[in-house]
């Protein structure tokens, strides 16, 4: 990025919570990559979801993404679609998602929380009110799938002005000509979606990832997290070896789905089952050689 572009991109930013930057600094100091875990708020019900979130850091989650449920998750595969619908059926709303974050923050002041989802529920809630409530609840960053740089004025710029990181997705289709635009107002970290596709389906090869990371590093000093299609400890370790963090979502959400009864209610052991998988993946990530 040119100095001028960097300066203009920095304009209108308020100090953020610093949690995301501190966490990536700590990971770097420890010489390892991080594990970013995704679960949908309120899946399969608000109480189970609350218990799960609170236990994620101890199981090895370095950063936490919380999905804001939406009826029409266009960029998500079947696993996350189903989790979103389960949460909505259990009565989840954006207001309740923010309450979940507040609750988490009461016990954990440092694990970064990133809300991920689609724009319409935020638009309905009201951008200014959402940003101020999210900030107060302890949200550190936002990933809003259907807001490309072309729509930065909707939420990205107001979020930066409110001191909340706006984390952008870069994809294999984001070419060198487009990357500067994608990076201009990205903060916190860059989330590289390793395949052209929806969540939880295909995986990228290590060779593809290596060259993608090299390409992205030429454009930015932001921490780099890689996701989409990571299901096993070995895959997570391979990603953590070359990037700053591995993002895992569908695998956890599928583990939730495996622990439901025929009415989509949590069976005993659901939380432990998911935490076991988090722990396995965290072990993989922590054992990876940088």
């Amino acid at each position: 990025m040119s100095a001028v572009a960097a300066k203009s991109a920095m304009a209108g930013r308020a100090a953020d919570s610093g949690r995301i930057a501190r966490r990536f600094d700590a990971l770097r100091a420890a010489g390892r990559g991080g594990l970013v875990t995704f679960v949908t708020a309120g899946d399969p019900d608000p109480e189970t979801s609350r218990a799960l979130l609170k236990a994620l850091p101890a199981a090895g989650a370095d950063l936490i993404e919380i999905g804001m449920p939406f009826t029409d998750p266009m960029a998500d595969g079947p696993a996350i679609q189903a989790s979103s619908l389960r949460a909505l059926k259990a009565g989840m709303t954006l207001t309740r998602t923010l309450a979940l974050v507040r609750d988490f923050r009461a016990d954990d002041g440092e694990t970064p929380i990133i809300l991920m989802g689609y724009y319409n529920p935020i638009d309905t809630y009201g951008v200014d009110r959402f940003l101020s409530d999210a900030k107060a609840a302890g949200v550190d960053g936002l990933i809003v799938v259907d807001l490309p740089p072309e729509e930065d004025e909707e939420l990205c710029l107001p979020a930066l002005a409110a001191g909340i990181n706006f984390i952008r997705l870069a994809t294999p289709t984001t070419d060198d000509r487009r990357l500067p635009a994608v990076l201009a107002n990205t903060s916190g970290f860059l989330y590289y979606v390793s395949i052209a596709g929806i969540t939880g389906t295909r995986s990228a090869s290590e060779v593809d990832l290596q060259s993608a990371v090299e390409r992205l590093r030429r454009h930015t000093d932001l921490p780099l997290a890689i996701g989409f299609g990571i299901k096993t400890a070995a895959q997570a370790a391979a990603v953590a070896a070359i990037a700053d963090a591995a993002v895992v979502g569908s695998a956890f959400v599928s583990r939730i789905a495996e622990n439901l009864d025929s009415e989509d209610r949590a069976r005993p052991g659901l939380v432990d089952g998911v935490l076991q998988l988090v722990s396995d993946l965290a072990t993989g990530v922590r054992g990876a050689k940088k």
Partner: peptide, 11 residues
């Protein structure tokens, strides 16, 4: 507007 995922934007 153009409210789509980044993967689709170049397209």
């Amino acid at each position: 507007g153009r409210f789509v995922a980044e993967t689709l934007m170049p397209l």
